[in-house]
Design a protein around this nucleic acid. Structure first.
Length: 506
RNA sequence: GGGCCCGUAGCUCAGCUCGGUAGAGCAGGCGGCUCUUAACCGCAAGGUCAGGGGUUCGAAUCCCCUCGGGCCCGCCA
């Protein structure tokens, strides 16, 4: 526990804890069984007439006290659990003067309590629980945020997400929706016959994408390790091994900035499907998004996104060709016939500031981002990227200079990236070497064991990658990635839980 | 990496332009109230004005530095 100067609020609550203990009451008891959700308790009271109390049976609810409104001999307490809130009705009439006063004196907003009582409606018609017994389940020493405004400070909402969650039903609903979305995704893939697998986070070299890895060290191996930046190369090894349809939902790590659409650790879903190509994959992606969007109203009710998503993601999705669409939007002809220098000056012309020595594909990507991306306001597959930036995809079966790859875009978000996978070991080796030659540092690391795996024979296959955080953002209409990650990376503050002693490589 | 903005009580915010004893609401304490639901009424209390330095008779306010955060741009899938 950090030493912090105790506010008078905390002192007062701590004093109540001591007082409870002195009276033999455990402020942190072990269990409160047989409770029903608050909304269900509300439903039991709703059919009653105003002023009426049900004869029975008694019900039990548990949750956090939001507000206490005391009127002398009657008091109203709002209790909230994950399902919703219910009003507790306390009166000297049912409890007796002494017990009533004792309970009110013991309790504060933020406390966790269990209540048993009879469903009732107040004279004003509010469904309530006429309380017979009340049990403190955990005394809150720290006072909750203000009941009306909640926790607004964006920094505190991230640093102390638990306070954001306890104070905000909207935040709880958002993260619950993320969980349900993930469950829906797994169910869909399971039903399609895919096996969920787990592959290593730690390895000698992180490959499968172009990104700076986090580095750490194994004491056992006495060597540097890297955290994965992609799931791809291990999952393809599983295709070699005969698992045929596999997917993984896992955290990957890229040593980059945190901004509204990037997080240094984020959740990636990748799947690999033997004996199919990227055309089949486009069909699967379409069905996947349509099925998830259709259920969004159930997962995140009362949201604008839930109302529009089922229609937005109704198949078939629009399909465009990377080069044709870019040429049409930009008015530039013969893009693939142009030199790297020409493409660079075209990219510079639209404000891109990438390094001069970047490969041609980088300049094409910049042009695409400028001319085409803003026009993709409904789900659109972009097909057949130029070969240059995609070392893991198979060359297009009929179009020179292209690979069999598509990305799905919607409203500026990339919602999926798929290839017909390269499975020729010699070509894979060449493409890795070209990458290394072209860019040096941040590029696809050469993974010799992966090439060796391909030499045993990887079936023809298609693969897909979807960033789950962005999928959640796009479906639920949330503009910042920090709002879909429970505990985003934040800078440490002096004096806060620092690690002592040696912590890793210098 | 560049620019703009923010940090005041546990929480939500005034006060800063134009320097002069630190303010409100909620929450907490005491008292009152048998139907409220942002309950209400009365009384009393609550501050490292993010941190450090400077200017000044005097700094929450002006200047500089540091820390933390937000937004935009750039970079990065």
């Amino acid at each position: 526990m950090p030493e912090e100067s105790e506010s008078h609020l905390r002192r007062s609550r701590r004093a109540k804890v001591e007082d409870l203990r002195a009276r033999g009451v455990d402020p942190y008891p072990y269990r409160f069984a047989d409770r029903i959700p608050a909304v269900e308790a509300v439903a039991r009271g709703t059919p009653l007439a105003p002023g009426e109390t049900a004869p029975g049976p008694a019900v039990r609810v548990a949750g956090r006290l939001l507000a206490l409104r005391s009127h002398g001999k009657t008091s109203f307490l709002d209790l909230e659990d994950l399902s919703g809130a219910i009003q507790l009705l306390l009166s000297t009439e049912t409890l007796g003067d002494e017990v009533y006063r004792r309970w009110l004196a013991d309790l504060d907003p933020g406390d966790l309590v269990g209540a048993e009582g009879l469903p009732a409606r107040t004279r004003r018609g509010e469904p309530s629980l006429q309380v017979r017994s009340l049990t403190l389940l955990a005394k809150a020493i720290a006072p909750p945020p203000e009941k009306w405004h909640g926790l607004k400070d964006p920094e505190e909402r991230l640093r102390r997400r638990y306070v954001d969650l306890l104070a905000s039903p909207e935040t709880r609903a958002r993260f619950r929706a993320r969980s349900l979305l993930l469950r829906g995704l797994r169910r869909f893939l399971d039903e399609e016959g895919f096996l969920e697998v787990e592959t290593p986070v730690l390895g000698q070299v992180a490959s499968g994408a172009a990104a700076a890895p986090f580095r750490t060290r194994s004491n056992y191996l006495a060597s540097e390790l890297q955290l994965r930046i992609s799931l791809e190369l291990h999952l393809k090894r599983l295709l070699v091994g005969g698992l045929e349809r596999v997917y993984e939902v896992g955290r990957i790590f890229r040593n980059e900035d945190l901004d509204s659409t990037h997080s240094p650790e984020f959740t990636m879903m990748e799947l690999y499907w033997a004996y199919e190509d990227y055309g089949a994959m486009a069909g699967l992606v379409e069905r996947l998004y349509a099925s998830l969007a259709a259920r969004l109203p159930e997962w995140l009710p009362d949201s604008a996104a839930a109302r529009t998503a089922p229609e937005t993601f109704r198949p078939p999705f629009r399909r465009v060709d990377f080069v044709e669409e870019l040429e049409a939007r930009s008015g530039i002809s013969d893009l693939l016939g142009r030199s790297r220098e020409e493409l660079r000056s075209l990219a510079r012309g639209v404000g891109a500031t990438v390094p001069d020595e970047s490969p041609a594909g980088t300049f094409l990507d910049k042009l695409f981002d400028h001319y085409v991306l803003p026009t993709l306001d409904r789900p659109t597959f972009v097909f057949d990227f130029p070969t240059v930036t995609t070392p893991l995809a198979k060359r297009h079966r009929s179009r020179p200079g292209r690979v069999e790859r598509f990305e799905l875009y919607c409203r500026g978000y990339e919602l999926g990236n798929a290839y017909t996978e390269l499975n020729d070991p010699e070509e894979q080796e060449t493409r890795f070497r070209e990458q290394l030659a072209a860019r040096g540092e941040e590029t696809y690391a050469y993974d010799a064991d992966f090439v060796e795996a391909l030499r045993y024979g990887m079936p023809p296959a298609t693969g897909l990658g979807i960033g789950i955080d962005r999928m959640m953002m796009a479906l639920a209409g949330i503009p910042s990635i920090k709002d879909v990650i429970l505990f985003p990376l934040v800078r440490g503050r002096p004096g806060e839980s620092s690690v002592e002693g040696p912590t890793g490589p210098p």
